[in-house]
Amino acid sequence: MLQSLSEVVLKVEGLGKDVPALAGEGADRLTILSDISLAIRGGESVAIIGPSGSGKSTLLGLLAGLDDPSRGRVLLDGVDLGALGEDDRASLRAEKLGFVFQSFQLLPMLTALENVMLPLELAGRTDAHGRAAEVLARVGLGERLQHTPLQLSGGEQQRVAIARAFAVGPSLLLADEPTGNLDPHTGERVIQLLFDLNREQGTTLVLVTHDRELAARCDRVLGLQDGRLVSGA
């Protein structure tokens, strides 16, 4: 599993995030994350664990450039996300990032195939249809291309989401509680798929979970508590 441990893909330096506090919370800003520094190498699989409210999702959002940090910086393949505009970050995501969410985030009005085609089309790929069908076949949904999310079970939906995430061949895959909405059996199959694809494609995997068993299957586990890294960095 540790093949081609090469350069650092993702580097985080002194990352912090504050949000405006609600009335009655004393200070006028609330610190969600503080002083996070870490480096993740190509092909590595890393789990971020921590209890609810520890800042896991916020960290993941910052790693993906979905939000701006209050302090510090995130470098993806050496590019400082903070130095990029919204649209440049979007382009970077289209090129290098895959996403898997707890709530799947499939577009309900599109079929499985069309959902997977979406990032390919956004990246301007002409083989979107063929590539999407291929990835869907790989996750075992070759027969269900024309089904819409509502016609699929939760496990199937998450497999579509995984197919969508891997379709563009991302160098970094971020997963937010990928099994959070699934029963243990289905969750296990989805996780297996995630790891299999990760290995096959040599993708770097960062997943957020509070499932210690799942975390243990990763190369490295980062513990987060009250917005600080407490282990694994």
Binding site: A64, L66, E86, D87, A90, S91, L92, R93, A94, E95, L97, F99, Q105, L107, L118, P119, L122, A123, R164
Partner: peptide, 16 residues
Amino acid sequence: LDTCAVLRCLGARQAQ
């Protein structure tokens, strides 16, 4: 709103 958030997440630019 959700659709657009997902599209942005998948790398869609504002102009797109």
